[in-house]
């Protein structure tokens, strides 16, 4: 049985946020919705300050608070360890969002088609001279995911439902890595099967000491961090992304 996990090397991460970009393109998430979020953190004040970066996908917890509280089982834990959201079943109560200590859930506050970054009908959009670039949407996102055959892939599906990081389940099905992992220019991510000792993630975790975020909450996250240490309470965010709808 596969046990998916991710290891993020904080010594490598330079806070470029290319993973956030890749996630948005791959998963078609609406404006203001960040399934992957990279903290740029500052400890102390200039000139005696220290910068650090912390990418934050969904932790895909083994003891996920969001799965426990979902009243209809739209949020569920898969056998391979993914914490998935059946957006066709979600009733939009947002209990998962308040239960999650990591703040990874994103509610669609309006029709995702209208909450896009570009207005596709605008004439000034770069085009081939005759028409604007057609809006592109990843066709894989609208297919049910195996093995449960439930609609869990991708974002921007409908208003009034919760969506979050899926570890790019549509890519995993094809044997590919999540988009954030593939797009990282400095190879900060390692992704794979914990049960396979030769997988990238297993080797990374065997190599270096690791920690998980907010382990004291008992959520048993599947995302490990190596290099650096857990962010201290003294850090504050700089250059925060303005997430607005």
């Amino acid at each position: 049985m596969t046990r998916y996990a991710m290891a993020i090397d904080l010594d490598r991460c330079m806070g470029c946020r290319a993973c956030m970009e890749a996630c948005k393109v791959e998963n078609g998430t609406p404006k203001g919705s960040f399934w992957m979020y990279v903290f740029r953190l500052e400890e102390g004040t200039y000139p005696s300050s220290k910068l650090s970066f912390l990418p934050r996908p969904c932790m895909h917890c083994d003891n996920a608070p969001c799965v426990k509280v979902c009243p209809v089982g739209a949020r569920y834990k898969r056998e391979d360890g993914l914490v998935a959201t059946d957006w066709a079943r979600c009733i939009g109560c947002r209990y998962c969002e308040v239960a999650c200590p990591y703040g990874v859930n994103n509610f669609n506050w309006s029709d995702p088609a209208e909450a896009d970054y570009l207005d596709w009908n605008e004439a000034e959009l770069p085009g081939d001279g005759e028409s604007v670039i057609p809006p592109w949407r990843n066709p894989d996102l609208d297919e049910d995911s195996r093995p449960e055959n439930r609609p869990i892939a991708g974002g921007g599906h409908s208003a009034g439902v919760i969506e979050k990081c899926t570890f790019c389940v549509q890519r995993l099905e094809k044997g590919l890595q999540p988009a954030c992992v593939t797009n990282c220019p400095v190879d900060a991510f390692a992704f794979g099967d914990l049960d396979d000792p030769d997988s990238e993630v297993s080797r990374k975790l065997a190599d270096k000491p690791s920690f998980r975020l907010l382990e004291e909450a008992g959520t048993e996250p599947r995302v490990y961090y190596v290099g650096d240490k857990h962010p201290e309470a003294e850090v504050h965010q700089v250059e925060a992304v303005e997430a607005k709808v």
Binding site: G32, S33, F34, Y37, G92, E97, V98, C100, Y102, G103, V104, N105, N106, F107, N108, W109, S110, D111, A159, G160, A240, V241, A243, K244, V245
Partner: peptide, 15 residues
Amino acid sequence: EGMGTTGLRNIGPMG
């Protein structure tokens, strides 16, 4: 219009 008409927003990056 969707629940964007409310003052509610996501916890996290949306603050």
